[in-house]
Design a protein around this nucleic acid. Structure first.
Lengths: 225, 225
DNA sequence: GTATCTTTGTGATATAAATCACATGCCTTT
DNA sequence: AAAGGCATGTGATTTATATCACAAAGATAC
C-alpha cells in the first residue's frame, strides 16, 4: 500500500501533527477523489460516513431554507468541510458542493475519531479550527441581516478579491442567482447593483469577470451597509 | 479548600468525565458568582481570561452589527458560554449578558486547557458541544433571513415555550426592542404582530406574560415563514 | 406620591427590495 | 450552424417592513 498521505504536500495543520504511524494509518483509510465543478460532496439529510477534506478547489456550504437553498458561505481549500455535521451529528445538517474543479479526500470517520481520542495535539488543533469556523458564522449572522444590498454585494466582491482569489481581478464562480442566495437578495437585485457599480466606475465587468477599480469606495460601501 | 465542584449537582456533561483529582483541581481554579438580570458576563472586544459556565439562569449572546446590537441567540443553563471565543481567540468576538438572575462559574483558562490536553474524554465531549452549537448557528442563519416577521415571531414564541420554559405560559424575558434585534425586525413590527396574534386568538397576553392558545396554528405560521 | 424615564401600542407615510415581465445574450448539444 | 435552454439586464409595479409621530401605560427614582 503506498503511503499517499505521507508525501502529500497540502496536509491539514492537524494532520501535520500526526506521527508517522498515524499518517500511514490515515493513508490506508483515505481516498483522494477529483470532483468536477457542480458536483455535490456532502448532501444534507443523509448519513455522514466520512470526514471530508477539501484538498484543492472551492466549495459552497448550503442549507435548505423555507423558500430557497441558502448558500451560507464559500470555503477555499485546503480545509475540512462539514466537521461539525460529520463528527457531531450522524445526519448531515447541510450540503457541500464544489464550485470549481476540486480534489477531495474522504477519511474514514473511525480512523479520524481514533486520532481525536489518542492524539491530543491533533484533537486540540481540530478543536481550534471548529472554534474559528463558529466565530466566522457569528460574523455571518450579523452582517447578513443588518446591511443592505449594496453593502452585502460589496462585501462579497471584496471577499472574493481578498480571501478567495487574492487578486482584484477574478471570475465570479457562481451565478447571479446563487450570488443572491448567498446574500439573501433576488437575482435581479444582484444584477442591478452590479450594473450600478460598473456605471459608477467602481468595478468593470466582462461577463463573470470582475475588475475592482475603486477598492476604497467598495470598502466604504461595505462598511456603511 | 472546600471542593465545591465535587458536590455541585449541575456540572456539565464534560465535567462529569473528569477524575476526582481533576475535579478537585477545577474546584481550586473556579469561582461561582451570582449575576443579576442585565449584567454582562462576556464583553466583545476585550481579552478573554476565563471559561464561562452558566450554571443556572438565562443569557443572550449578542454581537455588534453595523446598525444595532444583534442578539444572536438565547442560551439556557446549564451551558458553557462563548467557548469558541474563549479558547479559540484571545479577544472576545461577541458579548454575553444574563437576562434573568443567574449563576456563573468562571474557570481558569489554563486549567481548562490542561483538561482538554490530558483527558481525551473531556476533550471529545467539549468538541461535541462545539459541533452542536455550530450546527444550531447554521440553522439560525437560514431561518433568520428567509422567513418573514410573523414566521420569525412565531418561531421565537415556540422556542420560549418548548426549549426555554417548557410551558405554554411564560414571561418574555426581553423587551420588544430586543425581540426585534433577535429576529431582525423593528420594535414596532414586533408589537404589531403580537397584537395581531392576540386578536386572532393565537396567544393571549398580559404585559410580558404570554399564553399560547393555538399552538398548532403558531407552528404553521412558523413553518410557512 | 409625584415626576421622569422606559416600554409598549397603533396610525400614517416612506422606502428598499421583491416580483413580474420581457428582451437579449451566451453556452451547449446535436 | 441552428435550436434550445440557462443566465443576465432592465423597466414597471407591488409589497413587506421600516420609519416617523405621538399617546398611553409601566417602572423607577426621588
Amino acid at each position: 500500500m503506498d503511503n499517499i498521505c505521507k508525501v502529500c504536500g497540502i496536509k491539514s495543520t492537524a494532520a501535520n501533527l500526526l506521527s508517522n504511524e498515524e499518517v500511514e494509518e490515515m493513508s490506508s483509510n483515505c481516498a483522494l477523489i477529483p470532483f468536477a465543478k457542480g458536483e455535490q460532496v456532502i448532501r444534507q439529510g443523509v448519513f455522514s460516513t466520512n470526514i471530508v477534506y477539501l484538498r484543492s478547489g472551492l466549495a459552497k456550504i448550503h442549507i435548505h431554507g423555507p423558500y430557497y437553498e441558502q448558500i451560507v458561505r464559500i470555503v477555499k481549500a485546503p480545509s475540512y468541510m462539514g466537521l461539525p455535521t460529520t463528527i457531531g451529528d450522524k445526519i448531515n445538517q447541510y450540503s457541500v458542493t464544489v464550485i470549481e474543479d476540486s480534489e477531495v479526500c474522504f477519511i474514514n470517520l473511525e480512523t479520524f475519531r481514533s486520532f481525536l481520542k489518542e492524539n491530543t495535539d491533533f484533537g486540540y488543533q481540530i478543536m481550534m479550527e471548529l472554534c474559528q469556523s463558529e466565530l466566522e458564522l457569528y460574523q455571518c449572522c450579523s452582517n447578513r441581516t443588518q446591511k443592505q444590498m449594496r453593502g452585502k454585494i460589496a462585501d462579497v466582491l471584496l471577499d472574493f478579491a481578498d480571501r478567495i482569489y487574492c487578486s482584484d481581478t477574478f471570475h465570479i464562480p457562481i451565478t447571479q442567482e446563487e450570488f443572491g442566495n448567498l446574500i439573501d437578495a433576488s437575482r435581479e437585485s444582484v444584477s442591478r447593483v452590479l450594473s450600478e457599480f460598473e456605471h459608477d466606475g467602481i468595478i468593470s465587468t466582462d461577463g463573470r469577470k470582475i475588475d475592482i477599480l475603486n477598492k476604497k469606495l467598495l470598502l466604504k460601501i461595505g462598511e456603511n451597509g
